[in-house]
Design a protein around this nucleic acid. Structure first.
Lengths: 279, 279
DNA sequence: CGTGCCAGGTGCCAT
DNA sequence: ATGGCACTTGGCACG
């Protein structure tokens, strides 16, 4: 059996199951009526409510409510989970050091406790990142500008690494900052920082260009760039269809959808759905 | 009953339970052998493995493995969950628009499906935020500098809002940027941006001071500040014990801990633990 | 371990 | 909706 579940256990039973699951290195879910206290880099307190606690064998703890993508409270990987029964409540405490942080979840009642053995790849390769954009531009430097010659990526400076550094057709140094999405003032400042660092390196009167490459730019950022004598070039993100990319045709099988259950944003009941054609 | 659980259901049974849980507005967990495909702002693909899918009634979807705090794949709130049986697999698809994004989780087998009614407060008040720091400094402007007079918070400029704006004892304008933790070059750039915007407003030759307030600063950032003629003042974060704070003594009851189960980072088995003194 | 930065960042609040 | 930014940001890669 790869999943063990207990319903409405006594705290003693829950504790016993937690111990066993810790030993097995299982992923654990605990659902019940609880309070949550956090103290560490900040501090917070959450009154009684029904919530889901997720405990991972790597030390991660997550407290989820019925809303939001982010947990209402958490503890990062590397923490140590402890469980005990105190004052008639099941207390799950997750602690880490440097920085010192403690998360306490105190269950008045546990509705369900499950432990499951998780496996399979967890390293995900995402396409469409800034690194992908950089590689695409390295393959096609002319997409940046005719005659652009790349010299280095992640070129170090006094104030941080430059995404892409090169020379234009006239031999002038060009600092390129890449962003995978629409940028605001901070990206303009970042580019300006790098350009000034290069200017200091090359001699204060050096003719150094700064080029921001992104899908688009806000008005304020555009103004900042103009005032600082920096340039902007629009480049679409490399995701999905663009030009002659490498290879992908991830999903094509998207035809008829019978036997469907739907839910989400608005609670428009799907009412009567057809039975499943369960192969 | 507030939790409904099915173990190793057929896909048809799982689909039926999903429909019902969608209708009830439950929080749903699905554990099983699955693949995950995402396409939207970026794209990713994840091979077969045993993972936990969390579906929230607000449209959030989370795929968790046994590691990391962040889900390996997800869909933000406002998405629409759909379930169907296709090609002998249970497919849970979560879709949203603007931007168009799709998450597909295809289960070969479902080990467990649970649905639970979540409730209780989810609005958490955190102490120790930058806003807290700002309020503390507004109460004690002399903690910034003797004679400092606050004039505005979130004061708008051409390039973004200034955390705290005021005048020093000599009447000079002071731009204050607050950070709740150690800062790097970007914070220095941010402050410089604001100071230059105020200088433009007040007349290019105006004597405007820039002051970065944070627990500490990196060497590079310190150098950047110095070069730009900006100042730094160390202020400890307002969390936990500091000076004469308002009022808190959240956890004091931390004495003996018998009947304890422990797990986390390293898999040092707790071996024989005492039974629980369960009330 | 600290430094710096990307992220499918997310979330909050303003216009 | 877009814009600007904080966040217990998290996560990674590099010195």
């Amino acid at each position: 059996m790869t999943v063990t579940t207990v319903h409405q256990p006594t705290h003693r039973e829950a504790l016993w199951e937690l111990e066993a699951a810790f030993d097995r290195g299982d992923l654990i879910t605990v659902f019940g009526h609880c309070t949550v206290e956090y103290d560490g880099r900040a501090a917070s307190s959450l009154g009684l409510g029904r919530r889901l606690l997720l405990l991972k064998p790597d030390g991660t703890a997550l407290v989820h409510t019925d809303e939001q993508q982010q947990p209402v409270n958490w503890q990062p990987p590397g923490s140590e989970h402890h469980a005990a029964v105190r004052d008639g409540r099941l207390r799950v405490r997750s602690v880490r050091s440097s920085p010192d942080e403690t998360l306490d979840v105190r269950f008045e009642t546990v509705e369900q406790l499950s432990a499951m053995a998780v496996s399979g790849r967890r390293d995900l390769s995402v396409t469409g990142s800034e690194a992908d954009l950089r590689n695409a531009l390295l393959d096609q430097p002319d997409a940046i500008e005719a005659g652009f010659e790349p010299l280095a990526t992640e070129r170090p400076t006094d104030v941080g690494p430059i995404d892409l550094f090169g020379r234009d057709s006239e031999g002038r140094p060009v600092v390129v900052e890449l962003k995978r999405r629409r940028v605001g003032p901070s990206a303009a400042s970042q580019l300006q920082r790098y350009v000034e660092a290069i200017r200091r390196e090359e001699g204060d009167d050096a003719d150094v260009r700064g080029l921001l490459i992104a899908p688009s730019v806000t008005d304020r950022a555009r103004r900042l760039l103009a005032e600082a004598g920096l340039e902007f070039a629009a480049v679409e993100p490399p995701s999905s269809d663009s030009d002659a990319g490498d290879a992908d045709a991830a999903d094509a099988t998207d035809a008829n959808d019978d036997s469907v259950a739907a839910a989400g944003d608005d609670a428009s009941g799907p009412s009567a759905a057809e039975p499943a054609n369960d192969e």
